[in-house]
């Protein structure tokens, strides 16, 4: 995927683009969407998570589970370089996106985020109209024609199963929607920029069971078009929606008194929940975890 490599690279640093490793990228089929090797993330001196080796495949739903503080969000935020916004955060090891090193100096985080969208734990619609929320991303990408925007807004809302509920009040503020509707709006807003991957960090934790079920259905609907990674505390949800599951936990270490997150096991969801290879996974998925 040489086009992708150059697309992720801002023009001004094109002379650096040779540094981007494309040998692996050539073997398109085998290359996972994300591949991390020896990934560790620090907040200042504190190593929050270490030794994460993961291959996330396309058109699948990957779930991250594990106790609070084990670094699920931290790892997730490496995939769209959202950790860049935290001044103290530092990433070690490699994160490859379609074979391209995401943390290469030549890669522009903004270009990454145009391809890798994110849905957050707390719905965060802009305090603008429903329409303007949906049109925000496309407008950033230079789409100005009203009929084009109208079409994107409508199709994104339809794919997020929200169209029927809001089609008569597109000009109303998105803040007037219910929590579940707001979260679907955020998913629609993400879909509107046609990303390649959607990262979801506990997207249902603020929602009631009905709204949650709708979002899970929605994920199944859209997984044909997008690669999805979801962080969840809800074991049933991971079992229901995901194809593969990664289990993280925390470990004491000798470098600080705080516990560092590690990836324990990563496998097909079915296997993770029926016969995991690591006993810590088994303890966690069966609810015998401390």
């Amino acid at each position: 995927m040489p086009e992708l490599a150059s697309a992720l690279t801002p023009l001004r640093s094109s002379e650096n683009s040779r540094k981007v490793n494309m040998t692996e990228a050539a073997e398109t089929d085998q290359v996972p969407v994300f591949r991390t090797r020896g990934l560790a993330v620090y907040y200042g001196d504190f190593r929050a998570v270490r030794d994460v080796n993961l291959d996330v495949r396309g058109q699948e739903i990957t779930a991250f589970i594990g106790p609070s503080g084990c670094g699920k969000s931290t790892v997730l935020r490496c995939f769209d370089r959202m950790n860049d916004l935290i001044p103290s955060a530092r990433v070690e090891g490699s994160v490859e996106y379609h074979g391209i090193n995401l943390y290469d100096k030549a890669v522009d985080a903004v270009e990454v985020r145009r391809r890798v969208g994110m849905v957050f734990q707390k719905p965060n619609p802009f305090p603008k109209s429903i329409y303007d929320n949906l049109a925000f991303g496309p407008r950033l990408n230079g789409i100005k024609k009203k009929n084009e925007l109208d079409e994107i807004v409508e199709s994104s809302l339809k794919r997020a199963a929200l169209w029927d509920e809001v089609k008569d009040r597109l000009k109303a503020s998105a803040m007037g929607l219910s929590g579940g509707q707001q979260q679907r709006l955020c998913i629609a807003r993400c879909i509107a920029v046609e990303p390649d991957v959607i990262l979801m960090d506990e997207p249902c934790s603020a929602l009631d069971p009905i709204a949650t079920a709708r979002i899970e259905d929605l994920m199944q609907e859209i997984k044909r078009d997008f690669t999805i990674i979801i962080v969840t505390h809800n074991m049933q949800q991971a079992a229901r929606v995901s194809d593969r599951t990664a289990f993280f936990t925390t470990e004491v270490n000798n470098e600080s008194d705080r516990r560092t997150g590690v990836l324990v096991e990563f496998d097909l969801t079915q296997k993770m929940f029926s016969r995991p290879s690591d006993e810590r996974t088994e303890a966690y998925v069966t609810g015998r975890f401390g």
Partner: peptide, 9 residues
């Protein structure tokens, strides 16, 4: 809100 915006590129 800033995160939402950065998240959309």
């Amino acid at each position: 809100l800033r995160e939402a915006s950065y998240g959309l590129g």
